[in-house]
């Protein structure tokens, strides 16, 4: 059995073999793999007795259920109004320069994918970003770079 097959089987066992488990199962795969490959979606479909099209239909709706490969760490910078007013553009610029990629791209070493997101629920402490599921509020360009450096150094 492939790794993904084992992973999906375990998730289905945990959440139950019903359509209602589709989101938790897909979320579980993304947590480990960072994205949903075609193979992964076909296996999920098989395990939950759904068509692959149904699984893809659901997956492709959700921003956090990526169906294209992503780097090991996903950085999402809030671009909504309150963070915009507090300088999210400078944060994005600093990270783009440091990582040598544009928003939407993944670094060559596959370490980081840089994305923007809509309001992350920290508007009083903007600008803010998520790295995977960790939140970093009250950013300055320097602080944002430090966070990224930390991920590089500690091979996270």
């Amino acid at each position: 059995m492939s790794n993904i097959e084992t992973l999906v089987k375990n998730l289905v066992e945990k959440h139950g073999k019903t359509r209602n488990s589709l989101m938790p199962v897909l979320q579980g795969v993304v947590k480990e793999e960072r994205y949903l490959s075609e193979d992964a979606m076909i296996i999920v479909a098989k395990e939950l007795d759904l068509s692959a099209a149904e699984v893809y239909g659901t997956a492709s709706f959700y921003t956090f259920l990526d169906t294209v490969p992503r780097g090991k760490n996903i950085v999402r910078i809030c671009k909504t109004i309150s963070c915009h007013m507090k300088g999210k553009d400078e944060i994005i610029e600093a990270l783009e320069n440091a990582m040598k990629i544009k928003v939407g791209e993944t670094t060559h070493d596959n370490k980081f994918t840089l994305l923007t997101a809509n309001c992350l629920g920290w508007c009083h402490k903007g600008p803010v970003m998520l790295v995977n599921d960790v939140v970093f509020p009250e950013l300055t360009p320097e602080k944002a770079l430090e966070v990224i450096q930390d991920y590089v150094k500690n091979s996270k």
Binding site: N118, G121, H124
Partner: peptide, 9 residues
């Protein structure tokens, strides 16, 4: 809680 500007929840 997704409405821009809301973080109380």
């Amino acid at each position: 809680e997704g409405e821009p500007g809301t973080f109380k929840d």
